[in-house]
Nucleic acid binder design. Structure first.
Lengths: 207, 207
DNA sequence: CCCTATTACTACAGATGTGTAGTAATAGTG
DNA sequence: CACTATTACTACACATCTGTAGTAATAGGG
C-alpha cells in the first residue's frame, strides 16, 4: 500500500523549558479533569500537549515529579485565592460573621474555578508517596489553624476545653467533603443553604 | 543453556466454582490491603491466589465483576457486624447513650477488623463505574437514616427545623474520615477520646 | 477401574505504558 | 548568513496487563 516514507511529524513549537513545564502541567490538569487521575500517564500528558514523550522527560524527571509540580502550583493558586478572598477587616469579636463570609467565599471560589480544586480535593491513592506526604502535611497545617481557632473559642466556654485537634479533623473532613460535592454535583446544595447550615450549628454551639 | 522442556506448572487444587470465587475475593482483598487498589489486576489476583489468569476469567466476567462481588461481600459483612454490635435494647428517650454506644462499637469494630472496612472506606476513583455507583447508593441510604434521626431530634428543638440532609452529609463525612484514620493510623485517637468528643458536641447541641 | 465433565494450564496476539539512545530541525548569536 | 546550542522527533527494548483458543490433567460417577 502506502510506501510513503513515514512522513515526519511536524515539529511542535520550540519553547523554552519553563514555559514548556507550565504547558505540561496544564495538559496534565486537563487530563485529570477529563479522565481522572487514573488516566494520567506521561504518554497521555504528552498527547494532550501535542508533543512526544521525550519532551516530557526533558521537562520533568517522570510522572511523579510532574504531578508534584502540578499539585504545588495548584495549591499555591488555591491558597492564594483563599487568602485574597478572606476578609481582612474581620471583627475578631464576631466569629460568626467571619465564618459566614469565609464559607461564602469558599463556596463561590470552588464553584467558579473547580479545576483548581479538583486535583487537590479528589486525591486518588496510588500517587507517588512524596505527593501524598506533602498533601498530608498541608492538611495538617490547615488543621493546626482550625485547632487554634477552636481552642480560642473554647476558652470562652465554661467547662473543660474542647478537644480542638479532634474537632479540627472533623471540620476539615466536612469542608473537603462539601468541596467535592460542589465539584461533581454543584446543584446539590446552594451556597445559601451551606452558610445557613453552618450558622445554625454554630449558633447552637456558641450560644 | 537449559533445554529443559519447559516443565509444566503443578496443577493448583481443583476446586468447585463457588469456593474458587471466595478464594479469589480473598486474594483480591489481600492485594488491596497490601498494594492498594492501584495494585489490583486480574493478573495480580491470580498470582495472589496461586492460579493462572484463565481461572479468574472462569470465575468472574472480569476485574469489575470480581471487585463488585468483593465489595458486596465485604459490605454485607460490615453491615452485619454493625447491626449485631448495635444495642437492641436502646432507650429511644436517651439518644446520647445510643450515640455513645454506637460510636464505641464502631471504633472497636474497625480496630479489630480493619481489612473488612478498608476496601469500603478507602475507595479510589478509577474503579469500574458500576462499583462507584453502588457505593454511592449505599452511602445515600445511610445518609437517609441519619437524616431521619436528625429530623426527629430537630423536632424537639424550638425554631426552624434542621437541614437534616445537609447535616447527614456532614456526619457521614466525619464518620468515614475517622474510619480512615483508624485504619491507617490507629494510635491517633483513642476510642475514649472519640466518644468523649462526640458526646461533648451532642450535649452542647441537645442541651 | 475407566470415562468424561470439570477445572486448570499454555501460548498467543494485542493494547498501553515506560525510559532512553540516536538523529533531525530550528532559533538566535556572532 | 552560517553555526551551534537547544529543543524536538524516531525507534527500540522492555514491562505489564487483557482476553481467549486450544490442550492437558483430574476427581468422582458409573
Amino acid at each position: 500500500m502506502s510506501d510513503v516514507p513515514r512522513q515526519r511529524r511536524p515539529y511542535a513549537a520550540r519553547v523554552p523549558m519553563d514555559v514548556r513545564r507550565e504547558q505540561l502541567m496544564d495538559a496534565a490538569l486537563a487530563v485529570i479533569v477529563r479522565d481522572g487521575y487514573g488516566g494520567v500517564s506521561v504518554d497521555a500528558v504528552a498527547k494532550e500537549a501535542g508533543v512526544t514523550r521525550p519532551v516530557v522527560y526533558g521537562a520533568f524527571e517522570g510522572l511523579g515529579e510532574l504531578l508534584t509540580a502540578l499539585l504545588d502550583r495548584q495549591q499555591v493558586r488555591a491558597f492564594g485565592r483563599l487568602l485574597q478572598a478572606l476578609p481582612e477587616d474581620a471583627d475578631p469579636a464576631d466569629p460568626a460573621a467571619l465564618v459566614t463570609i469565609g464559607i461564602e467565599q469558599l463556596v463561590t471560589m470552588v464553584r467558579e474555578d473547580p479545576d483548581t480544586w479538583r486535583p487537590i480535593l479528589q486525591l486518588p491513592e496510588g500517587l507517588p508517596e512524596v505527593v501524598l506526604q506533602r498533601i498530608e502535611a498541608d492538611r495538617e497545617r490547615v488543621r493546626a489553624i482550625f485547632s487554634g481557632l477552636i481552642s480560642s473559642v473554647s476558652a470562652n466556654e465554661k467547662g473543660a476545653p474542647f478537644d480542638a485537634d479532634l474537632y479540627a479533623h472533623a471540620v476539615l473532613a466536612i469542608l473537603e467533603h462539601f468541596g467535592r460535592l460542589l465539584i461533581d454535583d454543584p446543584e446539590r446544595f446552594s451556597t445559601e443553604r451551606m452558610v445557613d447550615g453552618a450558622n445554625r450549628i454554630l449558633s447552637l454551639l456558641w450560644r
